[in-house]
């Protein structure tokens, strides 16, 4: 028998004890008791193993200590601020001419079948800029679009069809009180800065769109512009 062979049962016993410690600690918190065999084995092991007994005691004190930690409470007025933001969303949501949408979608779907989406650029515009003229977009005749401001985020959709990207971006923009303007091969989407996190989360949901941050946001920036470049 090698030294390793002699030590293996000991390591296995410690490992088994560690596994059972949590089960033992959780047994009193609605996770069900240990089996009688495991309970007896753990008790026996802890009685004979100072290392594991110490670890079990540390663990037990930890769990009890965490559970006894005083709670963190939401700041005063938190609920009112949430409600105000929700109300603001309702009142600021742009009136949408739903009956006009099928025409746009029809055009997009027809044109989009052979189009592959490559890159979404997310750029931030400063306060007070016009709805569509803030970012000058080139590249309408083909090739990569020219973004004349540094992009703060880049969103890649390498394998998603253009029609699908368009539909997805419009849905997300609408859900965040945004506006969408279609250019030749570019969709310009403007979104309130307060919606940025939600927009990025929605874009990345599902995993097919990867968001990359390009720069730090300036405090005074209020509007996010998404540029969706298609080729």
């Amino acid at each position: 028998m090698t030294a390793l062979d002699a030590l293996t049962p000991l390591f296995s016993a410690h490992a088994r004890a560690e596994r059972l410690m949590d089960a033992r600690l959780d047994a009193d918190r609605g996770e069900g008791p240990l089996s009688p065999e495991d309970e007896a084995w753990l008790e026996s092991h802890l009685a004979s193993c100072p290392r594991c007994r110490g670890a079990f005691e540390d663990r037990s004190r930890l769990v009890q200590g965490l559970l006894r930690e005083p709670p963190l409470m939401a700041p005063e007025g938190f609920a009112d601020r949430v409600l105000a933001r929700a109300q603001q969303e309702v009142t600021q949501r742009p009136a949408v001419a739903l009956h006009e949408e099928p025409r746009h979608w029809g055009q997009w779907l027809m044109a989009g079948a052979a189009v592959a989406a490559t890159v979404l650029f997310v750029a931030l515009a400063g306060p007070g800029r016009g709805p569509t003229g803030a970012v000058e977009v080139g590249g309408a005749g083909g090739g990569a679009p020219v973004v004349r401001e540094a992009a703060d985020f880049e969103v890649r959709a390498p394998s998603v069809g253009a029609a699908e990207v368009r539909a997805r971006v419009v849905r997300i923009a609408d859900a965040h009180s945004g506006t969408v303007t279609a250019h030749d091969r570019v969709l310009v989407v403007r979104i309130p800065r307060a919606e940025l996190v939600g927009v990025l989360q929605d874009l990345s949901r599902g995993g097919e769109l990867a968001v990359t941050r390009k720069s730090t946001l300036a405090p005074e920036q209020e509007t996010v512009v998404l540029e969706v470049a298609l080729e």
Binding site: P71, L72, M73, P75, F78, A79, L83, A86, Q87
Partner: peptide
């Protein structure tokens, strides 16, 4: 909005605590 208010008031501390942690 009233139903939303009730849910926010019910869960605000737990959600905030989780986020803060």
């Amino acid at each position: 909005q009233r139903a939303f208010q009730l849910l926010v008031e019910r869960y605000q501390h737990r959600v905030f605590a989780f986020c803060a942690r």
